[in-house]
Simulated assay, not measured.
Amino acid sequence: MKAMTLLAASALALSALAAPLHAETVLRFAHTQPTSDSHHAAAERFAEIVAERTGGEVTVTIHPAGELGNDPTVLEGVRLGTIEIGQTGNPFYTRFEPKLNVLDLPFLFADYDHVYAVIDGDTGRELLGELEKHGLKGLAFWEIGFRKLTNSKRAVRGPADVAGLKIRTTPNPAHVQAFELLDAIPTPMAFTEVYLALETGTVDGQENPLNIIRSNRFQEVQSHLSFTDHAYTVSIVSMNLRKFQDLTDEQQQVLVEAAQEAAIFQRDLNREQADSDLATIKEAGVEVVEEVDREAFKALVYEPVKQSYVEKFGPEIVETIESMN
């Protein structure tokens, strides 16, 4: 009996020692989009893949709609390690890694195929790698999309129609410079503040893709939408680098693969929802201009904004992206 008791005690001790090796790792994933947006659906897909492929050893909890703070707060939390994983638009990353600003140059990308060839290839991996010196592991590029212009004042068909409009932009230098060249009044502000700013008339308009406009209900406080498609914006899923390195090699690989698979899932979802997003916006009474003089816009802004980037970082990466079209 005594021997059995000793054996049982030994087994319990060994079990206790072994437990930490299989302890569940919980990673908090923060973003600022509502649960009706494709980013949230992609985050859910990411969490499912991670849980499944790690056998439950790593789980991801999702905190949407600015629950853990606005975009700069989320990103700073990931850098400090108070939040494990965050997703936000590239313009917020360019505040501390300006080389990424190349992806926000207006009229740089011809279409979605051009975008994906760049961000899914060597150039994309090189740019994600730039984040490591800032304490971040770039997991994947997700999609905000081709930006369209909304406002409450007038229909926009060409550059002259933008003059004088106070437009909420991202803090990205390329976006700000482009609207200054169009004689608009660019007004950077946190995304979580945009709806109220539009509703109160603090700004006249904003620029985002259809899915973002619809999911954030901007159609309720805007009367005009124009298919300017003036810039494509990626969002980036990143993780605190030290916490990423604390995971096993196998777990690290799962997170990177899951983030990329969720990116493809989100892109497909955005394409599937485009018609219904536009229908929802039209049903709200928004006047939609699909035939926009994009070449006139490009003639005014592309070369000056590109030159500003080239002066700082050289022409190589821009030329590489242009050559992939």
Rank of each mutant, 00 (worst) to 15 (best):
N90K: 08
N101Q: 14
D275A: 15
F46H: 06
L247C: 11
V115I: 13
G164E: 05
G69L: 01
A13Y: 11
I264N: 10
F29V: 00
N172V: 04
P188M: 01
V310R: 10
G285H: 07
E76D: 11
I212Q: 09
L198G: 05
G121Y: 09
Q260T: 10
A274Y: 08
V286N: 03
A110K: 15
T35A: 09
L136W: 07
N211H: 13
F244T: 01
W142L: 11
E261I: 05
L7Q: 14
E84L: 00
F191S: 12
S223I: 00
Q260K: 15
F227N: 09
A279E: 13
V194G: 05
I119E: 08
R294C: 11
E303M: 12
L300Q: 15
S323G: 11
V74A: 00
D249M: 03
G285I: 13
A8Q: 12
Q307K: 13
F141C: 12
V305N: 06
G121H: 10
F265R: 03
R79T: 05
L131G: 12
D104N: 15
T228K: 08
S215E: 06
D37F: 00
N216S: 07
T150V: 15
I185E: 12
A274E: 14
P188E: 01
E67H: 09
A9R: 13
S308G: 14
W142G: 04
A140H: 04
L181K: 14
S238H: 06
Q177L: 13
Q266D: 03
N151T: 06
G86V: 02
A110H: 14
L131P: 00
F107T: 06
V292K: 08
N151P: 04
T150C: 03
L75C: 03
F146L: 01
E250W: 04
D204W: 02
R157Y: 02
L181D: 10
E303C: 07
T192K: 10
A190M: 04
F109A: 14
I119G: 05
T73W: 03
A18S: 10
H114N: 11
P20I: 03
L278G: 00
G158A: 11
D71A: 07
P304L: 10
Q87P: 00
D111C: 11
F265N: 10
K148Q: 11
T73P: 02
L269V: 02
E52C: 00
L80I: 07
Q266E: 12
L247H: 04
E143Q: 10
M1H: 09
Y302M: 08
T94I: 04
Y302H: 15
D161I: 12
V26G: 02
R242Y: 05
A184K: 13
E250D: 12
L17C: 13
I264C: 02
V26H: 15
A184S: 12
E295W: 02
V203I: 13
D161S: 08
I144S: 14
Y112G: 07
L80C: 01
Q307Y: 12
D246V: 00
T82G: 00
V254A: 07
V74P: 00
N325C: 04
L181Q: 11
A41F: 09
L210C: 08
E283G: 03
R157G: 14
E52L: 01
A184P: 06
L210N: 07
L100Q: 13
T150R: 08
A65M: 06
F96W: 10
V162Y: 01
Y93H: 14
